[in-house]
Write a protein that binds this DNA or RNA. Structure first.
Length: 223
DNA sequence: GCGACAG
DNA sequence: ATCTTGTCGC
């Protein structure tokens, strides 16, 4: 029998959330070599409307090497967890998981808006989603949560390691020439080098990789 | 105690 | 994240 994704038993406060992170972090795997994008890649993003009262989760599935969207799902529900740095997944994943159940395609890789292991407890939203779905995931964030990195060169493709105490947890990657770089880190079942290569391979002239860019656009159409 | 702080 | 119009530059 397939292990099901549980939206129930969701923590209702930070102390409970912290326990969940501690127990699930051990399941995170940061090994997994990818030599190019798999056939089906999903992009996940979440938007908020009505002053944050409503959470809107969007998922777009692109097929490679063509790179076009073959399926998209958008789901909205009342927001029930506040935003606190370090606990973003508890606010955004409930809606994402419902949307995921409506998906017909079976993505082999998921790119999420937010951090992967580049998190205080190595359990950002991409890692959390990866463990719940038991699928490879990558965190693609537009700004820093933790870690240090020197500014990479101005050209697309240039990058520098994002580190914390000598240990690399991801990359500061320039995905578009002369545009602010992205914070990329493995979520689950993807190694550090592959996380960078895959985000670059999924890029299409914009700062965000196409899967995440399309999901971002869809979530903002507010449906 | 002070500063930092994904979306 | 969201509130918001036009505008400068590659």
């Amino acid at each position: 029998m397939e292990k099901q994704v549980f939206t129930e038993n969701w923590p209702s406060n930070f102390s409970e959330a912290k326990v969940v992170q501690a127990s699930m972090q051990g399941q995170v795997c940061v090994t997994g070599r990818f030599d190019g994008l798999p056939e089906y890649v999903a992009g996940v993003d979440v938007a908020f409307r009505d002053g944050g009262a409503i959470t809107v989760a969007a998922i777009c599935v692109l097929v490679y090497p063509a790179g076009h969207c073959v399926e998209q799902v958008c789901y909205s529900e009342p927001t029930r967890f506040p935003y606190v740095p370090g606990y973003l997944s508890f606010r955004e994943l409930p809606a994402v998981l419902v949307a995921w159940k409506q998906l017909r395609a079976k993505p082999q890789l998921v790119m999420c808006d937010g951090q992967g292991i580049a998190h205080p407890r190595r359990f950002g939203i991409a890692s959390h989603l990866g463990v719940l779905l038991n699928l490879p995931t990558i965190g693609v964030a537009k700004s820093r949560l933790i870690g240090d990195a020197t500014e990479p060169g101005k050209n697309r493709g240039e990058c520098n390691p994002l580190t914390v105490n000598e240990e690399q947890i991801g990359w500061l990657l320039r995905t578009r020439t002369n545009v602010k770089p992205l914070y990329v880190s493995p979520g689950h079942m993807v190694d550090i080098p592959s996380s960078r290569d895959l985000v670059l391979a999924a890029g299409n002239g914009y700062r965000l990789p196409e899967p995440t860019r399309l999901a971002d656009k869809l979530s903002k159409t507010r449906t």
